[in-house]
Amino acid sequence: MAGKPGIRLTAFALLLMVFAAGSSAQGGVGSGVSTQAKKGEARRVESSPRGQILALSCTSCHGTDGKSVGIIPSISGRSADYLETALKAFKSGARYSTVMSRHAKGYSDSELRLIAEYFGTVSHNNK
């Protein structure tokens, strides 16, 4: 059934739609992070829906918002740049790990950047 050209094309269109939908915070395609300032509030940074979806995978091992309660390192409190460097080092194998490199290899460099930005943003907002 999925082998039929018309159906495959439509499924492909759906894929484009859901990937496009999540690529930025406010609907435009951009860095994945934008800022919003409401009256009387400190500037709160919004992360992209796609970054959020990617990052939610991390919290099962690293804890909600990246705050670990056990031996697994916390992600929380790290800057986006630090996290991006670490994730890319796990992906390339430059940094030793038991399981992280097996995970990091599942993401493109731009997806790793979105994940890093998400947790960088959470840390920023929780300050």
Partner: peptide
């Protein structure tokens, strides 16, 4: 978590982001 994020988007009248699962 993927379903929760999708439902949030759908309630906002938006297309859910592509899922990533692990």
């Amino acid at each position: 978590k993927v379903a929760a994020a999708a439902i949030v988007r759908l309630f906002q009248g938006k297309v859910p982001a592509a899922p990533s699962l692990v």
